[in-house]
């Protein structure tokens, strides 16, 4: 039978239902008999729930404003390609010599 220490290492797979045979069944058997390990798995599950509800850091207002402007411009100009709407952005900052390197595309 698995030890509690081993179960804590396998608890994530158990949580994600990624291990339904072999070790997974052993984890289930252990959990049925071990309240502290059941508590550990429960806490891990609550942690995941909490992370799911976390609020990510919001973009700063300037960034958000620029992105919205780009969205608006693209919406007005579609179906033309992106380069058109962005080029007509009235407040697009001028590239400085040190920072004008184009961003490589993925």
């Amino acid at each position: 039978m698995l030890t509690c220490r081993e179960v804590t290492e396998l608890a994530g797979d158990h949580l994600d239902r990624e291990s339904c045979t072999g070790a997974g069944l052993q984890v289930q058997l252990h959990l049925a008999l071990c309240p502290p390990c059941r508590l550990f798995v429960h806490q891990l599950a609550r942690t995941v729930e909490l992370v799911r509800r976390v609020e990510g850091p919001a973009p700063d207002p300037e960034t958000e404003g620029r992105l919205l402007k780009a969205f608006r411009a693209a919406a007005e100009c579609q179906p033309q390609p992106l380069s058109e709407p962005l080029s007509v952005m009235p407040d697009a900052p001028d590239p400085s010599p040190s920072s004008g390197t184009p961003i490589p595309r993925g």
Binding site: S83, L86, A92, P102, I103, R105, G106
Partner: peptide, 18 residues
């Protein structure tokens, strides 16, 4: 500068974006 850079002609065609 990021915005200006994106207007470089021809870049859109180079996307490897899935």
């Amino acid at each position: 500068m990021r915005w200006q850079a994106l207007t470089t002609p021809g870049q859109a065609a180079q996307h490897a974006i899935p």
